Simulated assay, not measured.
Amino acid sequence: MHIHNLSQKNSVLNTFISEVRNVNIQKDRMRFRRNIERIGEILGYEMSKILNYKSVSVETPLGTSSVQVLENDIVLCSVLRAGVPLHNGLLNYFDTAENAFISAYRHHEQNSENFEIIVEYLACPNLENKTLILADPMLATGQSMVCAFEALKPYGTPKEIHLVSVIGAQEGIDYVEKHFDKTTHLWIATVDEKLNNKGYIVPGLGDAGDLSFGEKLQH
């Protein structure tokens, strides 16, 4: 797997990462969502540098200009609900992409620390020979990313796959690396060193879904 950890080079991305981690700034949900969206825009921009392009002629008021434009047939899939702001950021740059959405959540049996990933909803176009961008903001154990991809397989075989996350743990990165083809690209804003005993990223930022949209009732 090709891993692109953007935190290895300093950029304005660091500012947005610091703000989504900050417990005081997190209280502003609109700002939290916008920062995740901006991180998605930056990750999408960096990804765009290795995609495929074709030359087109554009008529201007004064003549003709030859421009290299993106030619990838993109399907953008995000894991609900936390993935929505990240999805919007990517869609701001890949605005002609088709879109897919999948629900994947942790189910804890009798409130135990052990869990399984449950997929309950999926809406997806044909993926055959397309560029799949699979976005999940928190790459913790990596299980939700893998389960989401397994659920997408009946919709066709993508030509190429790009995984996008805001924050990951090394354990989760190692897990997805074992389950995706070596040609897969992972685009991630920063990587933390470990998971706690409940499988959450430390230091991480907390629950991205709750911080974006409010706390949910447990069931």
Rank of each mutant, 00 (worst) to 15 (best):
R81A: 05
R81E: 02
R81N: 07
A82Y: 00
V84R: 01
V84P: 00
P85H: 08
H87E: 01
N88G: 00
N88C: 07
G89H: 02
G89L: 04
L90D: 05
L90E: 07
L90H: 07
L90A: 11
L91F: 15
N92G: 09
Y93F: 14
F94P: 00
F94E: 00
D95S: 15
E98Q: 14
E98A: 12
E98V: 04
E98G: 06
N99R: 10
N99C: 12
N99Y: 02
N99F: 04
N99T: 15
A100H: 03
A100I: 04
A100F: 03
F101N: 12
I102P: 00
I102L: 15
S103E: 10
S103I: 08
S103W: 06
A104W: 01
Y105Q: 06
Y105G: 05
R106E: 07
R106S: 07
R106D: 09
H107P: 00
E109W: 06
E109P: 00
E109C: 05
E109K: 07
E109G: 04
Q110R: 13
N111C: 03
N111I: 02
S112A: 13
S112K: 11
N114H: 13
N114W: 03
N114A: 14
N114D: 12
E116V: 15
E116A: 10
E116I: 14
I117D: 00
I117S: 00
I118K: 14
I118M: 12
E120H: 14
E120P: 03
Y121A: 09
Y121C: 06
A123W: 03
A123D: 13
C124P: 02
P125L: 11
P125A: 12
N126F: 06
N126H: 06
N126K: 10
N126Y: 04
N126E: 15
L127E: 01
E128Y: 03
N129L: 10
N129H: 13
K130Y: 12
K130D: 11
I133G: 00
L134C: 13
L134D: 09
A135E: 08
D136R: 05
P137L: 13
P137F: 13
P137Q: 13
M138S: 09
M138D: 06
L139R: 04
L139C: 12
A140I: 11
T141C: 11
T141Q: 11
T141P: 07
Q143R: 15
Q143H: 14
S144Q: 06
S144A: 15
V146G: 10
V146D: 10
V146L: 11
V146I: 15
C147W: 00
C147E: 12
A148S: 15
F149K: 02
F149L: 08
F149S: 01
E150I: 03
A151L: 01
A151R: 02
L152A: 06
L152S: 01
L152Y: 02
L152R: 00
K153R: 15
K153L: 11
K153H: 04
P154R: 04
P154L: 03
